[in-house]
Structures are given as structure tokens and as C-alpha cells.
């Protein structure tokens, strides 16, 4: 019976396996293959070399990489700190209101990211909502709040907020109330409770939330383009430019591979450190 079940399991997994191989793995393989082609070719029928990777080092693309990763880390850290109290309240304090909040936050996802970012552009630009009103009320005019690094990080925080909030709330919901009460009963202060009990027991949610936000932010383009102008060039932007304007597919593919390798390593390392099964109700 078990063996039959196992065979049926493979059979039922076949369609999705085929789809994943075709739509997810195949493009990755193509990108990987292009990354080891000579510069500026448009077919895979060439002898492989690693000139594209050499180009990354020579042309200083690592600067974009540092900006992407740095801003992703900053955005993730900020998201964690500002989401924790709200996630805690959603999981442990609010009853009905949690649903209202959930619906409210999810609703923002119904509007395209670019349109929402344009909303911020109109709000923050010179002559926009903030600067324009302040000027009309008699304050001195200024250059607007766009086109700098902090505003890009703000954009990342704004866009990826739901991706931190919900996993975090799920993680905090896993912290048993009696364990929290027992810790306080045994003398733990609020801070010790957080460090010794809440953070470790909510770890699976924390890891998932941080991973989602970090990965999405590291590959994000729209925030730096729309809010940041050309203040800094991020990695995703460089990849896009190499494939389109630069007409250098091997370079774009190599840049993409570097980003994928770094993000993949971070993801694998973090996921291996926590028990995700506990969160999804698998192994007890």
C-alpha cells in the first residue's frame, strides 16, 4: 500500500514537475549557459569562456552589487524592526481587527507596484504634494525628497512590507502563550522574554520574512529607477541594461548569475538553520 502510494505520488507530481522544469529550470540553464559565452554573441553555439565574469570585475559592476545588497539589508532590517510590534499585535493582541488589517494590507497588493511608486513620486517630488503645499503655505521651497539613497530604501520598505508582516505574524503566533507566561513568572523582564523566548520560537517566521524581503529587495529595480532617479545603479538595472541597451547577453547573464549565487547561498544557509516544518505543520 505504501509503495503504491509512493508510486502514485510520483505520478501526481509529474505535471507540476514538468512545468517547473520547463518554465523555471530551463530559463535558468539558458542564462547560466549564456554567462559563459564570449562577449556580445547571441547564440549558444560558441566555445565557452569566462570573459563576461572578467568584465564584471574590470568594469566595476561590484559597486552596483554592493548597493543592491546594502540597500536590501537596510530595508530588511528596517522592515523587521517596524513590523515586529504590529505582527505581534496581530498574532497575540488584536482579535477581529487582525482580519481588517490583513485585508487592508493585502488590498495594496491589488494595485501595481509601479503605480503605487508613482503615487510616492507625486507626493515627494518638487512641486508635489508635500513640497508644493509647504511652499503655498509660505514655507521656503526645497528640491523635493526624491533621488537619493534613503528614499530608495523607503520605497523598498513600503513595497515589501506585506512580505515581512505576514510571515512574522505567523511566526509569532507559534510562540506558545504559556511559555511566555512561564518566562515572566520565572523572573524574565520584557527584554529577556523577547531575547530568550519570543525571538527563538518565532525564528521560522522571522527567517522567512527576512529572506523574502532581502531576496525581493536585492533584485528590485523599480524603486531605484522611479524614486532614486539615477542616484545609484542597482544590480537588476545593470542586468536589464546589459540585455537591452548594451546588447551584451553574456554580460547580463553573468551579472544575473552572480546575484543568483549570492541570494541562493543566503537563502540556503538561513533555511537550513530553522525548522520550517514546524511552521507549516509538517513534522511534529
Amino acid at each position: 500500500m505504501d509503495r503504491l502510494n509512493a508510486r502514485l505520488g510520483y505520478l501526481t507530481a509529474l505535471p507540476i514537475t514538468a512545468l517547473l522544469l520547463l518554465s523555471f529550470v530551463a530559463p535558468l540553464v539558458v542564462v547560466a549557459a549564456f554567462s559563459i559565452m564570449p562577449q556580445k554573441v547571441f547564440s549558444l553555439a560558441h566555445l565557452p569562456d569566462f570573459s563576461a565574469y572578467g568584465e564584471i570585475l574590470r568594469q566595476g559592476y561590484w559597486r552596483s552589487l554592493i548597493w543592491s545588497l546594502g540597500m536590501a539589508i537596510a530595508a530588511t532590517a528596517i522592515l523587521f524592526v517596524i513590523s515586529w510590534p504590529l505582527a505581534f499585535a496581530m498574532a497575540k493582541v488584536y482579535r477581529r481587527f487582525t482580519l481588517v488589517l490583513t485585508v487592508g494590507v493585502v488590498m495594496t497588493l491589488f494595485v501595481s507596484e509601479n503605480i503605487r511608486l508613482f503615487g510616492w513620486v507625486l507626493t515627494l517630488m518638487k512641486g508635489g504634494l508635500i513640497e508644493g503645499y509647504l511652499r503655498s503655505w509660505g514655507f521656503a521651497g526645497f528640491d523635493g525628497l526624491l533621488y537619493n539613497v534613503p528614499v530608495i530604501v523607503f520605497g523598498l520598505v513600503y513595497v515589501y512590507f506585506p512580505f515581512m508582516l505576514f510571515p512574522l505574524a505567523q511566526g509569532i503566533a507559534m510562540v506558545p502563550d504559556d511559555a511566555r507566561e512561564a518566562a515572566v513568572d520565572l523572573g524574565a523582564s520584557r527584554w529577556q522574554l523577547l531575547r530568550e523566548v519570543e525571538l527563538p520560537l518565532a525564528a521560522p517566521g522571522i527567517v522567512i520574512g527576512c529572506l523574502l524581503c532581502f531576496v525581493l529587495s536585492a533584485g528590485a529595480i523599480a524603486e531605484s529607477k522611479l524614486l532614486g532617479g539615477q542616484a545609484v545603479i542597482v544590480m537588476g538595472d545593470e542586468v536589464e541594461t546589459a540585455f537591452t541597451y548594451g546588447q551584451n547577453w553574456p554580460l547580463g547573464a553573468a551579472l544575473a548569475m552572480v546575484l543568483i549565487a549570492i541570494i541562493g547561498a543566503v537563502a540556503l544557509f538561513s533555511v537550513s538553520r530553522v525548522d520550517l516544518d514546524a511552521m507549516f505543520g509538517g513534522r511534529k
Binding site: P176, A179, A182, D185, L186, A188, Q192, P200, L201
Partner: peptide, 25 residues
């Protein structure tokens, strides 16, 4: 202090770490 109905042991800690918890605090 109290022994809880559910015991409320810390599942992420070993037996020793559980017992040491109030001392660590």
C-alpha cells in the same frame, strides 16, 4: 512561581537549559 497545567516548558531548549532558565535570567 508556578508549575503550569501545560507545564510550559521551552521547546527550543534542552532539559538543562530549561532548568537553568531562572538562574540565567
Amino acid at each position: 512561581c508556578m508549575v503550569f497545567q501545560s507545564l510550559a516548558l521551552f521547546p527550543h531548549r534542552t532539559v538543562g537549559e530549561n532548568i537553568e532558565f531562572p538562574l540565567k535570567i
